[in-house]
Structure formats: C-alpha cells, structure tokens
Amino acid sequence: MRAKQKKDWYGREKSIEELHDDARNWISEIDFITDEIRFLERLLSYNYINCKEAGLLEEIQKVIKKITAEKKVGITAKEVIQEQERILSNLIKTNAASQNENYFDTHQKLEAEIRFYIHKYKNIKKEIFTIIETILKKKDQKKLV
C-alpha cells in the first residue's frame, strides 16, 4: 500500500493513502459547507422582514436560489466521492490500483470540480454577508432617527 501511484497532474506522484485522504477531506469540506448553508438559510429567514423593509427582497430571493442549487450540487458531489472511494477500495483489493488510469483521470476531474464548488460557495457566502451587512446598517440608521 505504500507504493506511489503516478499522477499526471502537478507532475508528482501520490500514494493510494493520499488519494483516499483527498476524498475524506472533500467529504469533510462538503459536510461543513452543508452545515454553513443551513445556518445561512436560517440567518436569511430570521432577517426576512428586515430584508423586505430594506428593499433587498429581490437580492435575497436570487441568493436563496443560488444557495439551494449549491446544496444540491454538494449532495451530488458527496455521492460521487463516495462512489470513487468504493472503486478505489475494489482496486486495492484486486491489486489493480496502480494500473487504472481511468481512476486517476476521474480523481483529477473530481478534484477540479470540488475546488470550483468551494469557490462558488464562498462567493455566494460573501453575497449573503454583504446583504446582511446592508440590512444591519439600515436597521441602525432607523434607530438613530
């Protein structure tokens, strides 16, 4: 199991353990994002009335659509990662892990997709924070008047 597996991306080799660690890290990241999405949805629902008063209702609805779509993407990505883990397990059992180029290609593509998913989610989170910040500022302005 310590044998290095050739990876064509980044010009280095990765062991089977490192490939497995990638998958575990991705699943952990997706689980964390799922928890954050749940929190952000609650945050938006608690501030819904303030959003309406601040005139940000349309923006909130757009962001809610985006975050709902990302939640679905996360669920699908997690299922794909788990399937990749099952395939890797079977390849290890049959001692075919180092010869399977298709697995490494799929792993590489999955890695790029996960990075894109995380990047996209972070941008949506920034949008939500900007909206909430705007709401809080308008709410504070009303208190001063």
Score class of each variant (00 low, 15 high):
23 A>V: 05
111 E>T: 10
116 F>G: 09
45 S>C: 12
123 N>G: 09
48 Y>W: 12
145 V>W: 11
91 L>G: 01
73 V>Y: 05
102 N>V: 10
136 L>F: 13
95 N>M: 03
19 L>H: 13
55 G>T: 01
47 N>H: 10
44 L>I: 09
50 N>Y: 12
1 M>Q: 09
145 V>Y: 13
106 T>Q: 04
27 I>N: 09
140 D>L: 14
78 K>L: 00
55 G>W: 05
133 E>K: 14
36 E>R: 10
137 K>I: 10
34 T>M: 14
74 G>N: 01
28 S>R: 11
78 K>D: 03
64 I>M: 14
50 N>P: 01
106 T>E: 14
67 I>N: 07
118 I>R: 09
80 V>H: 06
5 Q>V: 10
110 L>M: 11
75 I>Y: 05
43 L>V: 05
143 K>V: 05
130 T>H: 12
138 K>V: 02
115 R>D: 10
23 A>F: 06
49 I>A: 11
28 S>D: 08
87 I>E: 00
26 W>M: 10
33 I>G: 01
68 T>P: 02
129 F>Q: 06
127 E>A: 06
95 N>C: 01
123 N>K: 15
87 I>V: 08
25 N>R: 09
26 W>L: 04
123 N>L: 15
10 Y>D: 14
145 V>H: 11
44 L>M: 14
141 Q>Y: 06
109 K>P: 03
50 N>S: 13
65 K>F: 09
99 Q>C: 00
103 Y>I: 02
32 F>K: 13
88 L>K: 03
100 N>D: 10
131 I>A: 07
77 A>P: 01
122 K>P: 04
30 I>F: 03
39 F>A: 12
89 S>M: 03
54 A>S: 15
104 F>Q: 14
97 A>G: 00
64 I>R: 14
142 K>V: 11
14 K>T: 05
78 K>Y: 01
29 E>P: 02
26 W>T: 03
120 K>T: 15
55 G>P: 06
63 V>W: 00
49 I>S: 09
20 H>C: 00
18 E>L: 00
25 N>V: 06
59 E>K: 07
136 L>T: 08
135 I>R: 02
38 R>T: 07
90 N>L: 13
14 K>M: 08
45 S>T: 13
127 E>M: 04
13 E>W: 06
116 F>K: 15
52 K>L: 14
6 K>W: 03
14 K>E: 09
44 L>S: 07
12 R>F: 04
50 N>M: 10
140 D>F: 10
90 N>T: 04
49 I>L: 15
105 D>C: 07
10 Y>M: 13
105 D>P: 04
118 I>E: 09
128 I>E: 02
142 K>Y: 02
38 R>W: 01
91 L>H: 02
96 A>Q: 11
53 E>I: 15
20 H>V: 08
22 D>K: 04
72 K>A: 08
78 K>T: 04
31 D>I: 02
134 T>E: 14
142 K>T: 07
139 K>L: 03
123 N>Q: 15
129 F>R: 00
114 I>T: 03
3 A>G: 14
63 V>L: 11
145 V>E: 12
25 N>F: 05
108 Q>N: 13
55 G>E: 06
40 L>R: 00
110 L>Q: 07
78 K>G: 01
